[in-house]
Design a binder for these strands. Structure first.
Length: 280
DNA sequence: CCTATTTGACCGGG
DNA sequence: CCCGGTCAAATAGG
């Protein structure tokens, strides 16, 4: 297996960013509601974006020499001596990489419900915040889907929630069909939020949000996720421009920079998340 | 049995 | 070392 060098890595990242940005432009060019064999064109674009984003975030977090199969130290079943008590907590050092904060979409909504199925994996008290922050990951993580979601209730008494989406869904069957909560109180009970009537000392809640798109949507949940409303921006469908973008994207994938693959890495070494180009 | 949630421990960036 | 993000054992519930 080939090792990654820092120069190679930058080339890879550059190519991926070009592909991702072209895909975003293409998404804005796509007319709404293009179906082919029941597949919505924008859904495909979203999946492509997801693959770009996930690959970029994975690649960005890798250091030199980490391209080959990543084996975390904690996952090595080092031989446990018999005198090593089983209750000893595991050494989890190096177990997880923190994800870059890029590609986050922030929304202010009045329900944490959206069309995706999420599984809660954590909750934290945040310093100087009245309400805890809840952490969710996609239910289909086992399929390799890296989408995450963070939820925190606003402190302005508006009963709204600050939701941050991180990463994109790459899973199949991403749309869930049922509503989990019928009303806000059940939802708040579920989230285990503190009683908003109690006075907690909370300094000026500054809202400096960087590196993210902010969307205020007070109406319904149907645009609570960037993946479903991104094509709102679609205005023109300039076919020539569209074709050029496709060529740009596919070209990036099929004939990558010579330097990338000259060291014995072949395209066969890559396994794409989905066969997104089959229908195109 | 299985899957989902809870919750304190753990990790790592700043 | 602090704080926020994640892990994973214990627990809940179908």
């Amino acid at each position: 297996m080939e090792y990654i060098s820092s120069s190679n890595k930058n080339i890879w990242i550059g190519e991926l960013i070009k592909g991702r940005d072209s895909t975003k432009k293409l998404q804005n060019l796509l007319p709404r509601k293009i179906y082919n064999d029941g597949v919505l064109a924008n859904d495909l674009v979203v999946k492509i974006l997801g693959s770009f984003s996930n690959t970029l975030s994975t690649l960005s977090s890798l250091g030199p020499g980490e391209l080959s199969p990543v084996i975390s130290p904690c996952c090595n079943d080092r031989a446990l001596d018999s005198d090593e008590i089983e209750k000893k907590p595991k050494d989890r050092r190096g177990c997880y990489k923190r994800r870059k904060t890029e590609d986050s979409r922030i929304k202010i909504v009045d329900t944490i419900e959206d069309e995706f199925a999420w599984r809660k994996y954590g909750q934290k008290e945040i310093l100087n915040a009245k309400f805890p922050r809840c952490y969710f990951r996609c239910t289909h993580k086992s399929e390799g889907c890296k989408a995450l979601k963070q939820v925190q209730q606003l402190e302005d008494g508006s009963e709204k929630f600050h939701v941050t989406y991180l990463g994109y869904h790459t899973c199949q069957n991403i749309h869930k069909d049922t509503q989990m909560f019928s009303d806000t109180s059940a939802l708040k009970f579920y989230l285990n939020f503190k009683d908003p009537n109690i006075n907690y000392s909370s300094p000026s809640s500054h809202s400096t949000i960087t590196n993210a798109n902010i969307t205020h949507s007070s109406e319904r949940e149907d645009d609570s996720n960037a993946q479903s409303d991104a094509h709102h921006l679609a205005t023109s469908n300039d076919d020539k421009q569209s074709i050029a973008l496709w060529k740009d994207i596919i070209g990036n994938l099929e004939s990558p920079h010579e330097d990338i693959f000259k060291n014995g890495i072949s395209v066969d070494d890559f396994k794409f998340d989905e066969n997104v180009f089959l229908h195109i």
